[in-house]
Design a protein around this nucleic acid. Structure first.
Lengths: 226, 226
DNA sequence: AAATCGATTATTGTCAACAAAGCAGCAGTT
DNA sequence: AACTGCTGCTTTGTTGACAATAATCGATTT
């Protein structure tokens, strides 16, 4: 009778992780057609577990399958990326509201501590937008789980974030934005600490809206190509 | 070069459909532990495709798997069902707003026509809440696709609705609600026809909120047990 | 008598061979 | 010269057998 249910990794889980990170990191380019046995040799897997993983990823919308004709990585257009941000706006707004109602005091304290860490990271590594991106991810991750809304967290963490991160990897956050974003994060946490759900929702929506407009501008300026 | 890509059904697709409908219809009860080979004999499948389907359904949150210990249908608590409705509220609000901006005139006309059909169904089969439930599903389905937001539609149609429908099957919509719901539907479509996205969003959110409170009340009254 | 440890059994995870379907190249015809 | 139909090949879909793991039941010990 094992009490400690530490995650038992099956080959299928392994395959899932390998594929997912490869897609997110851009090692498998969007639109690229991928062969099964090619992936098998690449990740040291057999086709059974791999196919299970492909099924899961297809269900999550990261892969597109055409029966008997192969699987390819989903290609998201600029317009679709913008729509992803619209979805994030509403869903994370809800998450922030629920987080304000449900996060424990210690969780909020932790969140504030991570923001301090993020600030230091930004100061130390100026221009190293990567850290900010990871920090940003961390922040939103905590709010999603803090909402205590199982399905909401699942949809945000399991579906949306992977698609967003997939495009995060190739976009350099514009110079001034990290500091601005951090300020916005602070105000959201303040609202949560004051248990002001409505305000937290409003601020979160505005925050993501700003991020969306930022990317939109970069695309229009030709800085970011999709 | 085949032009007409009619859906090619593989065994895995078949397995997926079988399992999904069985879960939604309650033939596989929530919490019930299901064995693979039992399902194989039941649906005339082999384990390969079945496992692929299980992987997909697990990824969608309808099944819960514990490695080496089997798969069971997810059991959603009353509280979680309420949170599902909170998610629907925000997401379908967004869908209604985008639908107001993007649906074609003929799509809107079609939508109005289906509402007329629903009204007739309700009048003819009084108390037959089933038709209303299906009609309701149809309505929300059209709005979701009408948003032209691929990911949003995918999340609503592929994830949330199946979970909601799973619990719809066992709840009898209270007597007065079908007519009220139809009225709400009409006002939403009106807003869409007038291309008033904000209003459509507001009305849709209120509509789903009302549905949620209706179920909440039924649960409290003991009419509906989960 | 209760509890724990161990062997058995049933079930899941994995693999490799088989069948089927699409794709590409070639040849023949129009 | 372009197009259509055939043939062979590659890739995917499927199957059944094999290996590994957890649950169950029984025996032994405290």
């Amino acid at each position: 009778m094992r009490e400690n249910h530490l995650p038992v990794y099956t080959r299928a889980d392994e395959a899932f992780d390998c594929l997912q990170t490869a897609i997110v990191k851009g090692e498998l380019a969007p639109g690229e057609k991928i062969g099964e046995l090619e992936l098998c040799t690449r990740f040291n897997l057999t086709r059974g577990p791999l196919r299970e993983a492909i099924g899961r990823l297809e269900s999550r919308g990261l892969l597109v399958r055409r029966p008997h004709a192969g699987v390819k990585v989903v290609a998201v257009s600029a317009a679709e990326l913008m729509e992803l941000y619209l979805i994030r706006e509403t869903m994370e707004g809800l998450a922030a509201r629920q987080a304000a109602e449900r996060m424990t005091d210690s969780e909020i304290a932790d969140l504030q501590a991570t923001l301090d860490a993020h600030e230091q990271m930004i100061d130390e590594a100026q221009g190293q937008a990567y850290y900010q991106a990871e920090g940003d991810y961390d922040f939103h991750h905590r709010i999603a789980t803090g909402s205590r809304n199982t399905k909401l967290a699942q949809m945000l963490l399991g579906d949306l974030y992977y698609m967003v991160r997939m495009y995060r990897y190739r976009l350099s956050t514009s110079a001034g934005r990290p500091h601005r974003a951090l300020g916005e994060h602070r105000r959201i946490v303040e609202a949560i600490a004051q248990r002001d759900g409505e305000l937290a929702e409003f601020l979160m929506k505005r925050h993501i809206n700003a991020a969306r407009r930022n990317i939109e501008k970069q695309i229009q300026d030709g800085v970011l190509t999709i």
